[in-house]
Computed example of a mutant assay.
Amino acid sequence: MTGYLMLETGDVFKGDWIGADLQAYGELVFNTGMTGYQEMMTDPSYKGQILTFSYPLIGNYGLNQVDAESKKVAVSAVLLNDVCDNPSHYLSNWTFDDYLKEQGIPGLKNMDTRKLVSIIRKQHTVKAVISKELLSTFPSFESGELVKEVSVGKTEVHGEGEKHVALYDFGYKKSILDALVAEGCKVTIVPYNYSFEKLVALKPDGVLFSNGPGDPMTLAPYFELYKKITASYPTLGICLGHQLVALSYGAKTEKMLFGHRGGNHPVKHLPTGKVSITSQNHGYVVTDSTIDTAVFDITFKNVNDGSLEGIKHKELPVQSVQFHPEAHPGPSDTAFIFEEFLQQVQAGGKKACLITQ
């Protein structure tokens, strides 16, 4: 069955319908990864977005019960060139099309994804809608409160380790939780707006601010809370969590031209000069000129475009990175970030900071 992708630019693409039988809206983005389509679709950072797979063949190893990064698909819709209907992998439980239908997500195949990526790179932020009918006018829609939609509503506890980490959930990936549990941590997942008083009552040894969707400035009412947390506990920020650490100390963020989404982004560790290949998924970036260098050291920079990729507090055990050290999908070159964080946690937990209550 034929379906249509309509862009706010006026461009219209025709494709073959797959997945759920419903209309979908969102910001049009692309990912350059060759594998990891299940992890991409279930990454909550994609909430409110229509994902274009730039790799030409999707679905060849099926989908399974272990690789999802959240309990449900996060993307609004998917666009791809060719889909494999006969996957081959010993863990495979679903074909790509069956998985979309079960999750209630529509998509279009046989799309000119090269042209789509070219449009996104040229037009930057592009809103889109997919429908089985051509619409006479482009609909108006807003993204909504994305973090609120993907964050847990109440606390969850995982693992039984001696080190206790509170994970602030802005749309966390399961692989972040898995990495902490694998390192012997007890992890308490808390909502994005969890109060400082409740956090103290949990008695964590450290705090991790997770990844998540949308514009970090929508969380401005909580910047004071996040700064208080970082002043009181060893803290690691990842992706959106990195941006929130920077913003809570007075830095600024900006919308990128078309974002970083893929598993082959090189970043340079400035103290050593070492370059690592990283997994990334973000549309906003911290403006490096707004970082207070009397408070933070800039630790990582993107090799391709020079954008800010990491900071570290000069006095407190606080660091954050724009990329994903847990990978999935992508390389695990920067898994040492978790080791550094947990060394700070082990060194004294909240006693490593001056408690500000």
Rank of each mutant, 00 (worst) to 15 (best):
Y90D: 15
F258N: 13
G48A: 09
F223T: 11
F223P: 07
I298G: 07
G349C: 09
A128Q: 03
E8G: 02
K186E: 15
P234T: 06
P331Y: 12
A77C: 10
F53D: 05
E340G: 03
M40C: 08
F138A: 03
T32P: 08
L100Y: 09
G330L: 10
F296I: 03
D305N: 00
P317F: 00
V285D: 12
A327I: 02
I120T: 06
Q65A: 12
C239W: 12
Q319R: 14
S279F: 10
Q49T: 13
E197S: 07
R261L: 14
S143L: 09
T235L: 08
Q65T: 15
K350Q: 02
V318L: 09
D205E: 07
K314N: 02
L342G: 02
T230A: 13
G36L: 08
E156M: 02
V190M: 01
T293G: 04
D292M: 03
G259R: 13
K173V: 02
N281T: 01
E160Y: 08
N281Y: 01
T137G: 01
A128G: 01
Q65F: 13
L116C: 08
P234K: 05
C353E: 04
F30R: 08
E145N: 13
A74S: 15
S307K: 01
H260T: 02
H324M: 05
S143Q: 12
G262S: 09
L244D: 14
K109S: 12
P56M: 07
M34D: 12
F138S: 02
G259H: 14
L135A: 00
G184P: 13
A335Q: 15
H328W: 11
Q319F: 14
L244E: 11
K173A: 15
S279G: 13
K274I: 13
L236F: 03
A231I: 01
G237D: 11
T272W: 14
Y226F: 13
Q243C: 06
N110P: 05
F323G: 09
A179Q: 14
P329A: 01
A166P: 15
K101Q: 13
K351V: 05
K101V: 13
T32N: 10
V275M: 12
K127N: 11
L202I: 14
E340D: 12
I119K: 12
V295A: 01
L63Q: 15
I229A: 05
E69K: 02
P221D: 03
I298A: 06
F323N: 10
K122V: 00
K274T: 15
S175I: 02
F170E: 10
V75L: 08
H164N: 07
V78T: 15
M41T: 14
A347R: 06
T95E: 14
G306H: 02
Y99F: 14
L199P: 02
F336Q: 06
T95M: 07
